[in-house]
């Protein structure tokens, strides 16, 4: 690596601005180049580190591309059967109510085979966090059509585009669960640009903090790319996502809790709860 002598003076421990969090292991992730899973894993790990809950967090890994998530997160994790992560998280949270519990699911896991578990867990108002990665395709198995595939979107099982008359309409899980009384925080974010990553990180942090409210599920959807499934380069897939996915899956908070957390003085954990995102650039890393 070519480095000037001046940059060698800067690269010192005391000048560190940003380094990969220690909650992530050093294993190289198996994801394709540019995949949003890697960024989202890192955000979850950073939030866990920031809140200081590494030993109090239990994650539930799904089936899908992120099935090996437990190899990358240095926390307690449990692998669930396909789509059953909310059911397993329900059990964990009820047995260990003082722990922070989250599930990490893709759209094939959460919106197809696990629709029933997701909706019923949200309707029961369990107190855990669901992180939902929506890339509109079954990435791991070879790019088949998913319930979240956009109308007229080409996949390997809809080579002429999704015909909504024959295959039905895409499922907006996030809007669906927002109508249920058992959810307290429902939001949709993305991780394709620095500003969006900062917003998504804030949303994930809030989602973890809202577990203390005991008002129900906090649900964070991350609209992500799938460069391999969409058969594009990572940059092209991000552009395609902005042009096509965002009009159908608009970003932003869909439901925020009405009752605010009682603020304790000097309590960093709760200070950000009552602030609504106005300027994402002010988030400190």
């Amino acid at each position: 690596m070519a480095e000037t002598s001046s940059s060698n003076d800067i690269v010192r421990e005391e000048n560190l601005v940003y380094a990969k969090t220690k909650v992530l292991t050093d294993n190289v992730m198996h994801y394709c180049p540019g995949c949003g899973h890697g960024t989202t894993h890192r955000l979850v790990a950073e939030v866990i580190e920031e809140l200081g809950i590494q030993s109090d967090t239990i994650g539930v890994a799904p089936v899908g591309c992120s099935v090996l998530m437990y190899n990358y997160m240095d926390i307690d994790m449990q692998e669930a059967a396909h789509g059953r992560a909310p059911a397993l998280a329900t059990a964990i949270k009820r047995l260990l109510p003082e722990k922070y519990v989250f599930t990490y699911q893709g759209d094939g896991d959460l919106a197809a085979i696990g629709t029933s578990e997701t909706i019923h867990a949200c309707n029961r108002g369990e107190n855990f966090t669901i992180i939902f990665i929506n890339n509109g395709i079954y990435g791991m198995t070879g790019g088949q059509m998913a319930p979240t595939t956009l109308p007229n979107m080409k996949t390997s099982t809809s080579p002429y585009g999704r015909d909504v008359k024959m295959m039905g309409n895409p499922l907006k899980m996030t809007e669906l669960v927002a109508t249920l009384p058992g959810t307290c925080f429902v939001t949709r974010q993305s991780v394709h640009s620095p500003a969006n990553v900062r917003k998504a990180r804030k949303a994930i942090k809030k989602a973890f903090e809202y577990q203390n409210l005991k008002q129900g599920i906090s649900f964070v959807e991350i609209v992500s790319n799938c460069s391999s499934g969409w058969k594009m380069t990572p940059l092209q897939s991000n552009e395609w996502m902005v042009e096509n996915m965002f009009p159908f899956y608009p970003l932003g908070d869909i439901k925020i809790p009405e009752v605010q957390v009682e603020q304790k003085e000097g309590d960093v954990l709760h200070n950000s709860l009552n602030q609504i995102d106005k300027d994402s650039k002010q988030v400190k890393y």
Binding site: S6, N15, L16, Y18, C35, T39, P194
Partner: peptide, 25 residues
């Protein structure tokens, strides 16, 4: 162009694999 770097860490926070470490003075 290392001389133009301002240490904003934008590159590091979008990196899906977390391979970038940023320093600033």
């Amino acid at each position: 162009k290392p001389d133009d770097c301002t240490g904003c860490a934008n590159c590091a926070i979008v990196c899906p694999d977390g391979v970038i470490t940023v320093y600033k003075i």
